[in-house]
Amino acid sequence: MTQPHDPSRQPHDPSRQPPYANQQPYPQPPGYGFPGTPPPPPRKRGRFLKFAGLGCAGVLGLVVVIAALSATGGGSDDGGNTAADSSAGAATGAKEKREEEKPEQGDGPVKLTAERAEFSKSVLADGSDYTSVRVTVANDGDDEVSVNPLYFTITDTDGTKHTVELGVDEEQIDTVDLAPGENISGTVTGKGTFTPEYVTYTDGLLGDPVRVDVS
């Protein structure tokens, strides 16, 4: 039996597609629609930690180098040379000062000579640890000159000044007043064993000092 023709029904045309056939579907967020999709990998921080470790190691190495240089500089030869130079300069200055303080024997009325002498122990000596010098005082002026063992001092080669010990040497110089043209000799003695360098004589408390080297 022949079916009646339906004008609303059109024959199928393969070239005709639905209006939305070529459009892409909306993107779906990860994890939806595709089971088993792995999550995004975490951010790597290994490189940052590596650089941070290298930075700390560099700072530590720099500190060690600075400490080593400081320790080496503190014990350098320059410091020793500087200390030696300072000591030598101080010794030279002290010697020059002693030279300036030495009153030279001039054209005054007192003429003084001094030479080393053996210590002659007296009953007043406490042992034999003394050093004696034989001095000669001559009055070359027109007035009297007073002589007394206490008017003398002995300076040793180290620059130490020794006062005279009274009565310890049997040949100690006498206490006298020298008339013009007179002279007297005797010993002056200091406590201890030392090498005498020069003797200083002062006529009383107000007189000018006179120095002579010990021969």
Results as ranks from 00 to 15, higher is better:
112 L>R: 01
112 L>C: 12
112 L>V: 10
112 L>K: 02
113 T>S: 15
113 T>I: 02
114 A>K: 03
114 A>R: 03
115 E>R: 12
115 E>Q: 12
115 E>W: 07
115 E>G: 15
116 R>L: 11
116 R>A: 12
116 R>T: 15
117 A>T: 10
117 A>L: 06
118 E>R: 03
118 E>N: 15
118 E>H: 04
118 E>Q: 14
119 F>K: 01
119 F>I: 08
119 F>L: 02
119 F>G: 03
120 S>E: 14
120 S>Y: 12
120 S>K: 13
121 K>N: 12
123 V>Q: 13
124 L>S: 14
124 L>Y: 14
124 L>W: 12
124 L>A: 13
124 L>H: 12
124 L>Q: 14
125 A>V: 03
125 A>C: 02
125 A>F: 09
126 D>W: 00
127 G>S: 09
127 G>V: 02
127 G>A: 08
127 G>F: 09
127 G>Q: 02
128 S>L: 08
128 S>K: 13
129 D>H: 06
129 D>W: 00
129 D>V: 05
129 D>P: 01
129 D>G: 11
130 Y>H: 02
130 Y>T: 05
131 T>P: 05
131 T>Y: 08
132 S>H: 08
133 V>S: 08
134 R>A: 14
135 V>R: 00
135 V>L: 01
135 V>M: 07
137 V>T: 06
137 V>S: 03
137 V>C: 05
137 V>A: 07
138 A>Q: 13
138 A>G: 10
138 A>P: 13
139 N>S: 07
140 D>K: 12
140 D>I: 02
140 D>N: 15
140 D>L: 00
141 G>I: 08
141 G>N: 10
141 G>H: 04
141 G>Y: 08
141 G>A: 11
142 D>C: 01
142 D>L: 03
142 D>Y: 05
142 D>Q: 12
143 D>P: 00
143 D>M: 07
143 D>Q: 14
144 E>D: 14
145 V>L: 06
146 S>P: 11
